[in-house]
Simulated assay, not measured.
Amino acid sequence: MDETIATHLAEIVELVVATIGAGVISAVGIYLESLALGALSGGQFEVAVWLFAAGLVALYFGVYALGLSEVIPRLRQLRRSLAQP
């Protein structure tokens, strides 16, 4: 089993990096959305719209572009390759 993990080390590292990247970008998106709510409650409508749009873009890239399109398929591929004898 150790030999299998050693041969797939590059895939595991790529999966970890993509997962961390998706999490960080999603966290930035959530932070921008909270800033947008604060700006909206403070009466700064234009700033709130810009922050909201930037938060949506960050959430799109974090959740969909990296999370669903990269991390999930890589995880499935790694599980299949590790399950093969």
Rank of each mutant, 00 (worst) to 15 (best):
L78D: 07
A36L: 01
E70L: 15
A39K: 13
V24C: 01
L78W: 04
L56D: 14
I5R: 04
A18N: 02
M1W: 11
L32Q: 03
H8Y: 08
L9E: 00
E3M: 08
G42F: 03
Q77C: 06
L51M: 13
I30D: 13
P73K: 02
Y31N: 04
Y60M: 09
A10N: 01
P85Y: 06
L68D: 09
L51V: 05
L56M: 15
L78M: 06
W50Y: 14
G42D: 08
R74V: 01
T7F: 11
L32S: 02
V63H: 13
A54W: 05
T19G: 03
S41W: 14
Y64A: 11
D2W: 10
L75H: 13
A83H: 04
E11T: 00
S81R: 12
A54T: 02
E14G: 01
L56W: 12
I12L: 11
V13W: 03
I20S: 00
G67S: 08
A39D: 07
D2G: 14
L40R: 15
A48N: 14
L35I: 09
Y64C: 12
H8L: 09
A65L: 06
A22D: 09
S26K: 07
I5F: 06
G62R: 05
P85K: 08
G43N: 11
A18E: 01
E11H: 05
I20M: 02
S69G: 09
E33F: 10
V13Y: 05
L37A: 06
R74L: 04
V13P: 04
Y31H: 07
A39I: 09
A48V: 11
S69N: 15
L75C: 15
V13K: 08
L35R: 02
A53F: 08
E33T: 13
V17D: 00
A6T: 11
E3S: 11
I20F: 01
P73I: 01
L40E: 15
V71A: 12
P73L: 03
G38D: 03
L37I: 12
A54M: 07
P73Q: 06
V47R: 15
Q84A: 07
G67W: 08
S69F: 14
L37V: 12
V71H: 03
I30G: 11
A48C: 14
V47C: 12
L9K: 02
S34D: 04
G55Q: 09
R80L: 01
Q84L: 08
L78Y: 02
L66R: 05
T4Q: 15
A65W: 02
V49L: 13
E70F: 15
V16P: 01
V49R: 11
G38C: 03
F52A: 14
T19K: 00
Q77Y: 05
V24G: 00
V49I: 12
T19L: 05
L35C: 10
F45K: 13
I20N: 00
G67I: 07
A58P: 11
V63G: 08
L9I: 00
G38P: 07
A53R: 14
F52Q: 14
V71C: 11
R74W: 02
E11N: 09
G67A: 10
Q77D: 10
A6P: 05
A54K: 02
R76N: 13
E46P: 06
I20G: 00
P73C: 01
E11A: 07
G29D: 04
S26F: 15
V16F: 06
L51R: 05
V13I: 10
I20P: 00
P85V: 07
L9H: 00
V13D: 07
